[in-house]
Design a protein around this nucleic acid. Structure first.
Lengths: 157, 157
DNA sequence: CGACAACCGGTTGCACACAATTCACTGCTA
DNA sequence: TAGCAGTGAATTGTGTGCAACCGGTTGTCG
């Protein structure tokens, strides 16, 4: 059933994939860290602010769905963003289980300071728009495959 | 100087790239988590064991270079692996600053139990070998670009 | 109407990940 | 050889990220 010939090759490939994805993720992080540091943001906090800027206001639940983060991660993160003065959190009046997140005035001003970050980072990568789009598509394809695989494993292979 | 037309498009692209890379990384993690959990390993611990299995023995320094991790991450991680009985750490006799990491007998037995993980995970992704190789190459290319970019930013744009 | 399940956010505990610091050891040099 | 800069690992502090659990709110069903 299993092909013995490919076994070693497959193992090598998997190992390398693990390594390089891990490395890519941290390289991305390392590139943004100093740039975002100037604004007083971490990378995950930047993702939250990007979402809030675009959507205007949204609940913690929605934020978690968009960013794939649970409350255990978002609660303390949002608390820090609130303490820094960038966002405001308040219980929804219609559904008191929900908490609505909004940018403060200071948070909105931050958007202007963050405006040239994409250009700085992207131009630094030396990739053109076509390559970036391709990469984006590839990553989406992989993520979907992984999600499908995870769901399949959950339901007993 | 800056092209106003592309600005919004670029911003949107960067945002999506940030999001999806983050998501891919965590999807990968989530896929491995339950499988590795059966062996009592986390994903980073698995990467360490893969390296130790392949190299036989290596110093913490070398491990850090291969996995792109510093001692602040590796020290406690290795301590946990040692406590679990999978590796042994001892000061090098030639250079007492270095610590050599080796698999224990139990750690070697673990390798056999881990042997079918790559097949399980890879087959679950539904990607064929050619696609996996392509992805691997893409990620390497991006990581190198990001590293170059980071170095360039460090030296003042 | 009242019980009960589902839902939402927060908290706790554990494990990365990095920056900054400390400490022992090494190697070079005056 | 004595001092000193450099190196390798460990430690500390902060910030994710997830699992498990808690507590208040909502909606539904008997």
């Amino acid at each position: 059933m299993t092909e013995r010939v490919d076994s070693e090759e497959l193992l090598r490939l998997e190992r390398q994939l693990c390594f390089v994805l891990h490395a890519t993720s941290r390289a991305f992080d390392a590139l943004y860290r100093p740039v975002l540091g100037e604004l007083g943001l971490t990378y995950p906090q930047y993702l939250v602010m990007l979402t809030v800027w675009e959507r205007g206001e949204l609940t913690v639940k929605e934020l978690g769905r968009v960013l794939r983060l649970d409350s255990g991660t978002l609660s303390p993160l949002l608390k820090r963003l609130e303490k820094a003065g960038f966002v405001r959190r308040e219980r929804s009046r219609e559904d008191e289980r929900s908490v609505v997140v909004r940018a403060t005035e200071q948070g909105t001003r931050l958007r202007e300071q963050a405006r040239d970050i994409p250009r700085r980072v992207l131009s630094a990568t030396g990739l053109d728009e076509q390559q970036l789009s391709q990469l984006h598509a590839d990553l989406i394809r992989v993520t979907e495959a992984l999600d499908t695989a995870a769901a399949r494993l959950e339901q007993g292979e």
